[in-house]
Design a binder for these strands. Sequence first.
DNA 1: GGTGTATACTTACAGCGTAAGGGTGCCGTG
DNA 2: CACGGCACCCTTACGCTGTAAGTATACACC
Lengths: 224, 224
Amino acid sequence: MPTSPRAPLSRERILSAALSVADRDGLPALSMRRLGAALGVEAMSLYGHVRDKGDLLDGLVDHVVGMWADPLPDESDWRVVARTTMARAHEVLLARPWACELVAARPTVGRNRLRYAEALQRRMLDAGFSPQLAHHGLHLVDGTIMGFTLQELRRPTLQQLGEEVAAVARGERADEFPAITAVLADSAHDHAAEFALMTELILDGLERLHARETAERRTTDAPS
Amino acid sequence: MPTSPRAPLSRERILSAALSVADRDGLPALSMRRLGAALGVEAMSLYGHVRDKGDLLDGLVDHVVGMWADPLPDESDWRVVARTTMARAHEVLLARPWACELVAARPTVGRNRLRYAEALQRRMLDAGFSPQLAHHGLHLVDGTIMGFTLQELRRPTLQQLGEEVAAVARGERADEFPAITAVLADSAHDHAAEFALMTELILDGLERLHARETAERRTTDAPS
DNA sequence: GGTGTATACTTACAGCGTAAGGGTGCCGTG
DNA sequence: CACGGCACCCTTACGCTGTAAGTATACACC
């Protein structure tokens, strides 16, 4: 067999291997050498297809964004698009804790991010949003995805760090932190339900802003 | 002068030096060796006061949290506490881009975080929130702080990365991304105003959930 | 067959976190 | 005053990181 025994490298193959490594061993374990080893290749060979490690990470970010933004919902109602996108993004990010950290560290705007922003903002403009409000809407949806997912990821590490905090979480410091203790004691916290509730809160809020905006426009445009 | 020419190390001094280094040179530059050098000391000397680099970073996170959570507003209205805390947190995090990244990477719950959570949740419980809703409220406020600040930090790096994206941002791809182009063309984006608007949206939403909750409780408790 | 080009490998360097062990000066006690 | 103990800090070393520079191999085409 004259051909090389291994398939040739490519950006695609590198990115998907990087995704596997990060999924399996976490983000700190994603070094160029380990990634190369996972592909049966030396570290330096990767640099033919990837400018930097930063470039690789940026590619990874957009790849992950594509996981929830692709395929875009074929739906004209901005609420439906926002809702399904938020749910999918939440699911994808929860399954890949390293992705949140990565997006925070490398807030890249890639092709998938562009396509998703375009789709959501177009729906909002079509629904009569002002460009300003469409801008706010995108930020609100995106911010909620990241902010809330980070909240949930914060929780599992709670017990692993800090005896003082763990005592509070076990309800042993009710004197000093009564409210926290009461809240923790009461609620069997359902993350998925909370995220859904907050999604609706966000969408309601946006819709109210939109309604207020159109009301103002009407009184301004036709006051006579 | 028989005493050592340098003041003895302490966790406090180390943390505040780490803060300066991160502020000046960024988070990647915060290595144990550089931090030691900033204190006139070798890297290994730090390990007498800090278990780990992770321990140091956790301390840094809570230190930053303290910057906006301390002193807690002396105010009984949860809305006021939430609003001022969000504004202060936003300001602090925008001035320290590395802090967002750090919180995402090390979602630690420290002493300052506990005190702040306690204060806000107590106000909510006092106002008649159910423990569930107070829990949601804290998550909503925290999530919005992080999510929105991350959004804003994403922007400055937009032009530095990716010629394709930069072209879109300059409005040269109106054919493929009409909505984005329209939105960018129209809005002179005011981040502070957007954050304030979204803060009110959040608070309104929470208040509506609270009102709905009390209405339901009334019909349940006294239906006769 | 010879040459060009793409691809992957090798070597090397500076920097990282930190484990292990070696000094050095203050401090309380005899 | 002398001395043991003990904080504190420094030195050295190891395996890891990203990546710059240079080298070898294997295929495509004239």
